[in-house]
Design a protein around this nucleic acid. Structure first.
Lengths: 326, 326
DNA sequence: CTGTTAGCGCCTTCAG
DNA sequence: CTGAAGGCGCTAACAG
C-alpha cells in the first residue's frame, strides 16, 4: 500500500542510500539514477514529509493569525500572504483568532512543536508575554514592546493626508470618528496625526473616539452629528466606520458628499475586481503582505532583520468626496 | 537546546515509555504522573509533531482549496471551515487555487506525502483525473463523475423558490441572468429549476447565460434589458451578478425594486456583522462547512460515508424585492 | 504499573 | 560511486 524508499530501492535493485541521493543532492552514476527514477515513477513513490521533517527540522509552513478571515481587509491580506508564501514554496495555516488569545498561543506552541516555521499575525490580544525575540514572528499594524519585527502602513501620513484632502475640498469643520481598544496598536496614530494636522492647519475639529466593542454605534453617531451640525468633513478610522457614518448621515438627511464629505481608511474592496467602497486612505496591502512574508523568511533563515517596516499610503478619491482639479 | 522525551524521562527519573504514557492514554501512578508533569513543565517540553506523525501516520491537518479567499462567499465559507476544523482539533491549510489546477494537484500530492489528511475543495478545474475514491476529498458544489463525496446547497429548490417569490410579488415577466463555465457543477441547477418552474407556472421568461470569463458584462446586460423592457423580475445566478444587474438597471433609469425586482443567490455579506447585499436565496454556509468537515473526518477515519449531502436554502428578502404580507 | 526495545521513513556518515 | 548501518523523537508492544 504505502510505498517507501525501501520499496524503491528494492525495485531498482540498489540501496536506500542511493535512492536518497538521487532524491536530494545527487552524485549518482547516470545509469543508476535512471533505474531509480524509473522505479520511483513506477511505484508512484512520494517521500514522507514526516520522516523528512524529523531530520530536517524545517516544515516550510507558516501560520497566519488574523481576527477573522470573514472581512474584506483581512481576506485581502490573507490572499496576498498566501500568494507570496506559495511563491516561496511555503504553505500557509489559517487561524481566525477572534480575540481568542488561547488560539493564538496554540499556534505559538506549534512553532516549538516543529509544526510551523513561523507566524505572521494581526492580533489585538495580550500575547506579548509569549513573544520572544527567538520566536519567528512578524506583527502587522502593531508594535509590541519587545523587539518584535513588524510591518505597518504609514498611519501617521494617512491621518495627515486625510485632513489635507478634506481641506482641499473646502471643508470648514472636520471630525475624526473612530473606535479603539486598550491594546496599543499603530492605528491610533491615525487619530493623533489627524489632531496634530488640524491644529497646524488651524481648522476647527472634533473627535468621537469610542471604546470597542461599541454599543449602539448608530445612536452615538446620530447624537454626535446632531450636536455638531456644522461638520462638513469626516475622517473615519476605517472604511467600515465610514460606511456606518454615511448610513447615519443619510438618515439625518445630509447628503454625501455634497453636505458632508467622508474619507475612510484601508481601501477596502469586497473582492479583487470590485471598486473601493468609499474615498479612502488606501493601505498597500499587497506590499505589506509581501514584506511580511519576506521578513519572516529572513528571520527563519537566521538573517539580520529590519525591525520596523513602514509602507506608504495614498489617498484614493471615491464617491464620498467632491471632485477637485489636481 | 531542543528538549526531547528522553530529557524529560531522565529529569523525572523514569523511562521514556512512562512519559509517553502520561502524554497520551495515561494509566500511570498518580505520583509518577506528577513527577513527569513537573519535568515537562520545568523543561518546557513540546512533543515534536514530526516524530509523532511518523508513527501515527496522521497529521490532523486538512487543506481548503478555493478559487480565492478574497471574496465574501469564500471567505465566509473558509471562516466556518476553520471554525469547525479547529473544534475538531484539526489545523487548516489555505490554498487560493485561482483556477490553477497545478496548485490543486500540489495539495493532492500533499495527502500522499502525509502532509495533510484530506482536502475540502471548491474547484472548477479538471482535477477529476487525480481524484480517486481512495483520496480523502470532499467537494463543494460540484459533483465529480466518480464517487467523490460532495456537499451542496439545494440549488434546485433555490431556482424554484426564486421564481415563486418573484411571482408572489407581482412579477409578470422574469429572467435568469447567469454565467457558466464548461466544467459542470451544481450551480447549473439554478437555471434549470428556474426554467422548469417558469414553465410550470406559465410565466413568460427569458435567459441570459454567458460563458465565463464574461467580457463587457455591462454592455451585454444593457442590451439585454433594452431589448426586453417588459422584464420586471430578475433571478441572478449569484449576488455578485445581482449587484451588477442592479447597477445596470439604475443606469437605465429603472428603479429597484419598484420597476424591477431582483433576487440573487448565496446570501453574501461582506463580513459577519454586515447585512445581506440583496434579496437572495441564502445558502446555509455554516452548515455546509460543518457537514464538509464532518464528512471529511468520516472519510479519514475510514467510516462509511454518505456520498451526497444536500442542504436546504431559504429566501431572505432584502431591499431589492417588494414587501409582501406573509 | 513501568522500563526497555523495536521500528516509523528518511538522511547521512562510513566503509567498501 | 554505492550498500550498510545508525539515529532523528516518538509510540506501542513486551517483559518485568
Amino acid at each position: 500500500m504505502k510505498v517507501t524508499i525501501k520499496d524503491v530501492a528494492k525495485y531498482a535493485g540498489v540501496g536506500v542510500g542511493t535512492v536518497s541521493r538521487v532524491l536530494n543532492h545527487g552524485s549518482v552514476k547516470e545509469t543508476t539514477r535512471h533505474k531509480v527514477e524509473a522505479a520511483i515513477k513506477k511505484l508512484n513513490y512520494q517521500p514522507n514529509t514526516y520522516a523528512r521533517g524529523l531530520k530536517a527540522n524545517r516544515t516550510n509552513t507558516i501560520a497566519l493569525i488574523i481576527p477573522t478571515i470573514w472581512h474584506p481587509f483581512f481576506s485581502e491580506f490573507a490572499y496576498y500572504i498566501e500568494k507570496y508564501a506559495t511563491a516561496m514554496g511555503v504553505k500557509l495555516f489559517l487561524c481566525n483568532a477572534n480575540h481568542n488569545s488561547e488560539k493564538e498561543y496554540e499556534y505559538i506552541q506549534m512553532v516549538k512543536r516543529n509544526k510551523v516555521d513561523g507566524i505572521i499575525g494581526i492580533t489585538y490580544s495580550n500575547i506579548d508575554q509569549y513573544l520572544s525575540s527567538h520566536l519567528p514572528f512578524v506583527s502587522i499594524d502593531r508594535h509590541f514592546s519587545e523587539d518584535v519585527v513588524y510591518v505597518t502602513a504609514d498611519n501617521e501620513a494617512g491621518g495627515r493626508i486625510a485632513v489635507q484632502e478634506l481641506i482641499k475640498r473646502g471643508c470648514q469643520s472636520v471630525c475624526f470618528i473612530g473606535g479603539y481598544q486598550q491594546i496599543p496598536n499603530e492605528t491610533k496614530k491615525r487619530r493623533q496625526a489627524f489632531e496634530r494636522t488640524c491644529q497646524e492647519q488651524a481648522i476647527s475639529y472634533s473627535i468621537l473616539d469610542l471604546e470597542e466593542p461599541i454599543l449602539d454605534l448608530d445612536k452615538q453617531l446620530t447624537s454626535f452629528f446632531l450636536s455638531q451640525p456644522e461638520i462638513d468633513g469626516v475622517f473615519a478610522i476605517n472604511d467600515t466606520m465610514a460606511l456606518d457614518v454615511i448610513t447615519c448621515l443619510k438618515k439625518l438627511n445630509k447628503s454625501v458628499p455634497e453636505d458632508v464629505q467622508v474619507i475612510g481608511f484601508d481601501g477596502q474592496k469586497i473582492s479583487e475586481h470590485a471598486d473601493y467602497l468609499v474615498s479612502s486612505i488606501v493601505q498597500p496591502i499587497d506590499q505589506m503582505a509581501k514584506m511580511a512574508v519576506q521578513r519572516l523568511t529572513e528571520i527563519i533563515d537566521g538573517k539580520q532583520v529590519v525591525k520596523r517596516t513602514v509602507l506608504p499610503v495614498k489617498f484614493v478619491p471615491g464617491d464620498t468626496t467632491l471632485f477637485v482639479q489636481t
